[in-house]
Design a binder for these strands. Structure first.
Lengths: 324, 324
DNA sequence: CTGTTAGCGCATTCAG
DNA sequence: CTGAATGCGCTAACAG
């Protein structure tokens, strides 16, 4: 603290420009490099990031905007984003938008204050109005328009896969349960894929789509199963919903595995070292994070990028589906 | 982007100093304030954070170092830290140290590059060697030395409370199960409090302390219950451990509530809107986060602070203890 | 109360 | 390849 390039230059007997060039890996003669390195070490010099940012207009920082980090899917995703960014020498600003468009907007303003070089966003509001084409932005799980690059898991394929796995395990009557949001949402593709498989293979199915936000899961779920009495396979839009469905069905004396099989979506784990909580379609969160980081850094560097990346999902059997 | 204070000053017909003073809420005459505000709006001016940081030596950023955000306790805590920081106009750098002292050290170096004003750390390695007294640092859940301020829940009181609640519910033979770490750890106070209550009230108890890191929970737990056959109340060092214990006991044909009551620690929820997963001693994470933010900002401002804050815990009955 | 000015620490010309 | 000089956008001290 307090020691600047000038001090280093003085001690090494060179100009400040030379020190700067060293720091930035620009060609420097070996002999002078030695001297400068020694001086840096002796003085314990640390380049000042603010000064550098002021000059270069780069802060080496990416903002991650998500609804809330307090959710296993997002926290796992954030973990991988930070990990990937860190490898590239970038830092991560964490932004909990809480579904509040104003908060999202506020964070986007930060980019203009040159605090961040780009934004990775998982957002369900109309953020695209604010992201101009010259602002590096990568959307996760949500397709805005051709101008906005996005990364997503193969939701449609995942829905199909869930139906197929249930079918393969002898289920005769399938059910889809999910929420439905006012904002267009890639997750509806999970239902589409599921239904497409059922139609294609002439499998009977029913769907329950609960309007979000959902305050009470139990009531609509029970009401639904009052209508649909016969069923032996359920696919839920995500793992959280699946757990709610299991709980609701238990009060109706229906036990998973004995009375029905169940597949969730996301592949949520409470912690990295623990198991999946149920059979589920796993999103490749680490790969999605890596892809998002890759894209955003390319954008920051001014390179052209593909405008969407769709990654494959996998099925993992973990306690709520039978062995095949 | 591109529009600076100079442009604003020119349009408003004032000096740059006046614009700066306005931005920083220093006394300005109402009439000139009007003009400047109009110019700011018209030009869509955003002050450049890097330039400001360069001058003031303040980045309005705090780093949160934790083992991994991919853990419900930490992600909930991080959520509240970000929320609290955001209210104070501060940004949050997220750092997953992964228990790697080198990574922790690297992040601490950032402070010297004047990228962050202070650090809030949940760390179980010997980070105190690096945090000099002039570096604003607040430790969570871990007491280093007199020089390091820390915030923690009342672990000892929580342990006592768990024993008391089990006692109150008629348990005769209690058991404590937790891990034990090579680094001294505030969590051992949970066991201490628990045991203190038992001794004080002449209640029989046994303890199992498994060396960390724990790869396999089931084996030591089963071995332990082979020895300790009679028990009707269990207190676990945290909720994760409690869930593992429940699973292990199920394979021994012991069912919670029927054969024993169980209390965890932390008050973990998977998401903010969901319920606790079991009866547990709840840490006041929001209050802890607020206290940590309060302390760190005081330190950044150069104010003196208390050197520790211990917050009370509460018991919540949620499915693994009987009604009293 | 306000305009002017001098740096903050660095990257980047431009000469040499 | 290197040293000197310029300015990034802003704040703070100074003089009015």
């Amino acid at each position: 603290m307090g020691v600047t390039m000038k001090d280093v230059a003085a001690l090494a007997g060179v100009g400040v420009g030379t020190v700067s060039r060293m720091i930035n890996d620009v060609a420097v003669k070996a002999s002078t490099r030695k001297k400068v390195e020694a001086a840096i070490k002796e003085l314990n010099f640390e380049p000042d990031a603010s000064a550098r940012a002021l000059k270069t207009k780069r802060s080496q920082t990416i903002a991650l905007i998500l609804p809330t980090i307090w959710h296993p899917f997002f926290s796992e995703f954030a973990y991988h984003v930070e990990e990937s960014l860190s490898k590239h020498g970038y830092k991560l600003y964490l932004c909990n938008a809480d579904g509040d468009p104003q908060k999202e907007y506020d964070y986007i303003q930060m980019v203009k204050q040159s605090k961040v070089d780009g934004i990775i966003g998982i957002t369900y509001s109309d953020i695209d109005k604010f992201v101009s084409t010259n602002l590096p932005f990568v959307s996760i799980d949500r397709h805005f328009s051709e101008a906005v690059t996005y990364v997503t898991a193969d939701n449609f394929g995942g829905g199909k896969l869930a139906a197929e796995e249930l079918d393969k395990r002898g289920c005769q009557k399938l059910v889809y349960i999910g929420g439905i949001n006012q904002y267009p949402n890639e997750t509806t593709l999970r239902a589409d894929g599921f239904e497409a498989y059922c139609k294609e293979h002439h499998i009977a199915f029913d769907s329950l789509k609960i309007p979000e936000p959902i305050a009470d899961f139990a009531t609509p779920i029970k009401a639904f199963f009052d209508q649909v009495k016969a069923f032996d396979g359920i696919f839920c839009v995500n793992d959280t919903m699946a757990i709610e469905v299991m709980a609701a069905l238990k009060t109706l004396d229906k036990a998973v595995l004995r009375d029905y099989q169940l597949i969730g979506f996301d592949g949520t784990k409470m912690e990295s070292s623990r198991d999946y909580m149920l059979s589920t379609i796993v999103q490749p969160k680490q790969e999605m994070a890596a892809a998002a980081v890759d894209l955003i850094l390319k954008k920051v560097a001014g390179e052209q990028t593909e405008n969407r990346v769709i990654l494959p999902v996998t099925f993992v059997s973990a306690g709520t589906t039978k062995d095949v």
